[in-house]
């Protein structure tokens, strides 16, 4: 079974940190990773989480006024995430 994930980018590292804090408080697992070059050339940090948690996370961020920029679908193949893949 493939791991479906989503990667969110943010307009600043501060928003990404806040986004991670909000998810942690809500008990949603996520991982902060550097946004891959093929997604954005900015030196930003993104949050990757299970696709199943996407909706919950977006709701939690909305409530906490965390704004994310881009949402990229990802899927894990052979231990490595590929981005821009539809779930």
């Amino acid at each position: 079974m493939k791991d479906r994930a989503v990667l969110y980018t943010f307009e600043s590292v501060h928003q990404a940190i806040k986004g991670e804090d909000v998810l942690r408080a809500a008990g949603i697992a996520c991982e902060m990773i550097p946004v891959p070059r093929e997604i954005s050339l900015s030196c930003g940090q993104g949050l990757r989480l299970a696709a199943a948690d996407a909706e919950k996370s977006e709701a939690a961020w909305r409530q906490a006024a965390v704004s994310w920029q881009k949402k990229v679908h990802a899927c894990r193949v052979d231990g490595r995430y590929r981005y821009g893949v539809e779930n």
Binding site: V13, I17, M32, I33, P34, Q45
Partner: peptide
């Protein structure tokens, strides 16, 4: 920030 960056580097 330093912790984010070391994580980012090792990732």
């Amino acid at each position: 920030l330093g912790e984010i960056l070391i994580k980012s580097m090792l990732f």
